[in-house]
Design a protein around this nucleic acid. Structure first.
Lengths: 129, 129
DNA sequence: TCTAAATCTACACCCAACGTAAGGTTTAGA
DNA sequence: TCTAAACCTTACGTTGGGTGTAGATTTAGA
């Protein structure tokens, strides 16, 4: 029994506001599994996973347009995707960016650790004398 | 002869508009080495390196406030920095975020590679038959 | 000395990604 | 049946990170 939920529950479980959900719907990122009668939106668990994926991709620095371009790869059968060459282009560009970002992030992390050590040493010295 | 440059040259070398430089100055991220007579700004090479650092930190997902909070660690003597405990707090928070981001980025990269391979396989199959 | 190019300040505007508020409708449960 | 909570649409507001433009001033170089 894959029970459906309303926008309030989805919003709570996903940790985003219902306005954000409306907004994503307008951008084509997400749509309710069902819209009965007078317009209430009803969502299944896939919607929740889509929202979580969107959040993860946002944390990686993709904007909502870029997310729209790849999101379906995680949720629909790839055989049906049109314009596969174009999708590959996008994916490869993102892969290159991810590589760069990984490298920069590694350096940044090392810098952070160095700086923390340095600050802690300075504080210890200040305390001693 | 550490010759100074005007905003136009700095902007060109750093790959940002002069308007952006003005904007960063207002936020306290950057200031000219010198402002002679009637107000023209003159910059040294440190300004260029600051701009490059800002760009790098932006690519990592820091906003300009966060960048302002750590930027000086790269350019001034740490002994003179006030509120070291607070700085450490910020640095540690960023370190935690960097760790998360590194992990997510690694997963994302693997997903991308999988998706690319899948798409290329599908295209090859389509060509064959 | 003179003029074209560079720069100055100040205000307005832009886009993404939402948030707030109003006013009306629907639904669940007592 | 009735009412409070949840939802709907529409429209305007906000924030971050800038960009555009105007009109005045300054500077570099012929």
């Amino acid at each position: 029994m894959s029970s459906l939920m309303q926008i309030g529950e989805l919003s709570e479980r996903a940790g985003v506001s219902h306005r954000t959900i409306h907004y994503y719907e307008r951008l084509g990122l997400l749509r309710p599994a069902e819209r009965e009668g007078a317009g209430y939106r009803y969502y299944d668990d896939v919607a929740l996973r889509r929202l979580e994926k969107i959040a993860a991709l946002k944390r990686l620095g993709l904007n909502l347009d870029e997310i729209a371009a790849v999101l379906d790869l995680y949720f629909v059968d790839a055989t049906g995707i049109r314009g596969k060459e174009k999708v590959i282009e996008i994916l490869k560009a993102q892969l290159a960016r991810a590589d760069t970002q990984l490298h920069e992030l590694t350096v940044f992390k090392r810098d952070l650790e160095d700086n923390i050590a340095r600050m802690e040493r300075l504080i210890a010295e200040a305390r001693r004398g």
